[in-house]
């Protein structure tokens, strides 16, 4: 049963991958609480994207389970999918729609009211400086702009949970700042965010907790201070700790 204290995302004993014989993930346990921003970090191939695909329902767990708002996907796919929005690493847009039409399609799909849609869109277009491009087809946008559209679509949906995979790729410095500020705003309003990024120095000061994945396993997790305690250096940077953690295991 779901209650105010239960985590928005709960993964227990998750093992899975593309082949049953060679799973990529090995017994992952993690949680994202309400109003929490959690950084999922790891090397290429550590299993970050595979974990996200399991959360999104694009892959089925071989063992374990994924719950969003207390529900598994096979219990009620509609509620499960409505509870989260995703920002992929590479922008995936419909060639035949403009920026504004992408936002409208997303708002309609997530049952956002027309008034909320208009209010959120106005704010997001201004924040990401996309007003002038709002009527452009997605094929006429640069990579960074396409990424901004992805981010705006996720935020216009306004679900309780955001799954964000490498959002900074292709964004200009102002775009990165706008995104980080907006994520903080979402967090303050009670939304939860699972964020994957390689730019550790950027997310170090924004995430509440960090989960370190290595070869499909969680090798460490906690707040920045908890990680420092585990590491034994009170002023160690996230990058330094991460480097030492994974180096020691290769």
């Amino acid at each position: 049963m779901e209650n105010a204290q239960s985590p928005v995302l709960q993964i227990s004993g998750l093992s899975g991958g593309y082949s049953a014989k060679r799973p990529v993930l090995h017994g992952i346990d993690l949680e994202v609480g309400r109003g929490e921003m959690v950084g999922l970090i790891g090397l290429n191939g550590a299993g970050k994207s595979t974990t996200m695909k399991h959360i999104l329902g694009l892959m089925t767990p071989q063992q374990g389970e994924v719950r969003v708002m207390g529900k598994k996907r096979d219990e009620d796919a509609q509620i499960y999918q409505s509870a989260m929005a995703f920002v992929p690493e590479s922008p995936e847009l419909y060639d035949e729609m403009t920026v504004m039409e992408h936002l409208e399609f997303t708002a309609r799909a997530y049952n956002v009211s027309e008034a909320d849609f208009k209010q959120r869109t106005e704010k997001l277009l201004q924040l990401f400086r996309m007003n002038e491009k709002s009527t452009s087809l997605s094929t006429h946008l640069s990579k960074g702009m396409r990424q901004k559209v992805m981010i705006m679509c996720a935020f216009v949906a306004g679900p309780p949970l955001y799954i964000i995979d490498e959002p900074f790729l292709g964004l200009d410095p102002l775009g990165i700042r706008s995104l980080l500020d907006f994520m903080l705003e979402m967090k303050a309003s009670g939304s939860s965010i699972l964020l994957s990024s390689h730019i550790l120095s950027t997310i170090e000061n924004y995430c509440d907790r960090f989960i370190v994945l290595h070869r499909g396993q969680v090798i460490s997790q906690g707040t920045l201070n908890e990680l420092r305690l585990q590491f034994g250096e009170s002023d160690a940077t996230l990058e330094h700790m991460f480097y030492s953690l994974v180096q020691g295991r290769d």
Partner: peptide
């Protein structure tokens, strides 16, 4: 086969 159709809550 659209990616978003698998993600978005559209039955």
């Amino acid at each position: 086969e659209s990616f978003w159709i698998m993600i978005y809550p559209i039955s």
